[in-house]
Design a protein around this nucleic acid. Sequence first.
DNA 1: GTCTATAATTCGATAGAC
DNA 2: GTCTATCGAATTATAGAC
Lengths: 215, 215
Amino acid sequence: MVGMTNTDRPRRCEPTRQAILQAARERFACEGYDRTTIRAIAADANIDPSMVMRYFGNKEQLFAAAAKFDLHAPDLSETPPEERADRLVRHFIRLWEGDLADSSLQILLRCALTNETAAERMRLIFAEQVIPLVTTGIDPDEAVERSGLVASQMLGLALCRYVLRLPAVVALDSERLATWIAPTIRRYLTEPRAPIPSAREIQAGNDFLNGKPAN
Amino acid sequence: MVGMTNTDRPRRCEPTRQAILQAARERFACEGYDRTTIRAIAADANIDPSMVMRYFGNKEQLFAAAAKFDLHAPDLSETPPEERADRLVRHFIRLWEGDLADSSLQILLRCALTNETAAERMRLIFAEQVIPLVTTGIDPDEAVERSGLVASQMLGLALCRYVLRLPAVVALDSERLATWIAPTIRRYLTEPRAPIPSAREIQAGNDFLNGKPAN
DNA sequence: GTCTATAATTCGATAGAC
DNA sequence: GTCTATCGAATTATAGAC
């Protein structure tokens, strides 16, 4: 065809590429990085293992491609402050088990503990997506501290419910879960910060940590 | 010697055994199960890899021996109810970074995501040590639900601070951390449970999860 | 583009000398 | 009790035929 060159086509091999990616995501999500083999991915995608190498170079690059993640952070600037925590919690649950759910978060969380690429990406997501999201309407100087607290509760929930699958945490229905968690997040977002502890209080805390009885 | 038989001695090989165990603990704690090799453990312990096999049979049994864990759960029955959450949080922080700290918790948390033995042990610890601990002074019917919530915050904190090492969570000193987290735990322990959601509320929750706008 | 064959490592586990 | 030597299996990655 006139004007139809090879460089025009939008990658005819795209379906194969997507099949590999989807198989890789499922494997990485439920088996972690190390136990996932290129052979198994290829078998799932019904292709030859060498094709995976051809498309993605090596296992690490395949993982990097499979672990893309978007929080789909909602814009909270129009949300009344007293509702922000609730929206945040429900948005997060929706990311895991609602219509926005895919295996991306599962991949990151399960692999971040044994793969440095995943851990680094987790920190990047925290810095680029979580902190800006939480910052809406609060003092930027406090945003990092508050974001960290929010992350500790949110990721802990994800860990217990979706990865470790602790029966006690799995048993709660999502509505009840949101009702429990939202006030925690609200406090982390809005509660005035405690004053910087005095030297004496810090000492008392260290003493406790080291098993010394209080006076 | 008279009366001195072979069966009397308390295992002369105990030092070697302990050296292997300590090396294994460090490796499992910071590299996870799969990436830890028996060869590396043996090198750390300055012995031959085959000795590891001789002492512990195989890698899985070595892991089981290295992942023993005791929460050292305090007795809260004498503690006034309003102080229990605070004691719980401080005890937990002490387990990670105080005088009670060792690598046991780090091993469990890092390996539980990719090794079924570790995951199962985590659930066992939750059932045998966390739930009884939290049950002190609260309705046993509610203990499981409340324990799950407590675990979600405690393990989330551990995940972000000690394993993922999110800078925002690492930056907080332990006293300040306890001040932030304790009220959350107190609420999970004592706040009256929400009523069972009505069918309409559950429907509204599901709609939200699936992206339908509220009316 | 796809597949076969295989190189190059690495690891868990075993056998046996000392 | 300790070490040498090695097996057998699995893995990533590459080279090259079709």
